[in-house]
Amino acid sequence: MAAVDSAALLAGLSRSSNASPHAGYSPFMTADRRPNQARPHEHLLLTRHLRGEPGVAASFAHVVFDRPEKRNALTPAMVRAFVGTIDELAGDDDVRAVCITGEGNLFCAGFDLPLCQADPKALPALLGSLSEAVAAMRRCVKPVVIGAHGAALAGGCALLAGADLVVADRGCKLGYPVANLGISPAVSAPSLLTRLGPGSGAARRRLLDPGLTTAEEAAPHNLIDVLVELPEDVAPRAQLESMRLAKHPPAAVAAVKRHVASIDGSSDDERRRVGLGASLSLTDDAEYHSRLGAFLAGRP
């Protein structure tokens, strides 16, 4: 990757994001109403940043998990809308790259657990749609960049394995603490093995250890590609990386993504099905029900 003066760029970005919304159009504002914006779901914001707009060097789409009051906890409908959005963007000639970030204090805390307790169908639906979401990013013929700030836990961490490039702040917490709830993160195994490989050691450790790690510690194991200092640096840098990847000729990029996916197992639906099956096998388990109940009862 070409060297850039990231400090200067970030300084420029933070100036533009601090500017008044009336001062001009900036691709680095996400929460405000802007042109080319849509809500594929109540908690999902989609913005198309088109080349020629001020500050946009190459066209890309920005998908934001927008449920900050629930730490962007995933619901089945939200993840299904995400899958539909990625598939739609994959076929949109005006979009050359996809950037994904989260609103609020962290990228994504994983599944909506109170919903899982209230509705026995929610966990199987979430596992299935999560598996689809990772597959959708992998089959998308455009570069997919995820900017993870603060924390990417459980299902949120699983999403990272679908991206072509992951930006995170050094202290961003990562991991799969779900075995504490009696949930197996096996659904994430096929894509995590691909992402962290060759060699299964790092994925085996990460999936079996319910403890958390940081982006800085995880970077040597290929989970994180670009480290930035602070959580607030993540979204601007992810958008910058998206624009940079969006500049490449799309047919060549698509050919590379398809070819790599055919080699590394990304398009192996049987592997994906086996991983999902292992997680689904426990969704009726007594261990899961009692642990989830105890966990939610202990929450403030």
């Binding site: 779900v178 075995a179 504490n180 709830l181 009696g182 949930i183 197996s184 993160p185 096996a186 195994a189 096929p190 093995l193 299964s200 994925a203 085996r204 999936l207 079996l208 250890d209 319910p210 403890g211 592997r271 086996v274 991983g275 292992a278 997680s279 096998s281 426990l282 388990d285 261990e287 899961y288 642990r291």
Partner: peptide, 26 residues
């Protein structure tokens, strides 16, 4: 001790299912 402490607190079925799947993918 820290690692085994974390593992001791986790769900045994969840750990076993995850390990079994990783072995299958091996």
């Amino acid at each position: 001790g820290a690692l085994t402490g974390r593992l001791a607190k986790a769900g045994r079925n969840a750990l076993a299912a995850t390990k079994g799947l990783l072995n299958e993918l091996d």
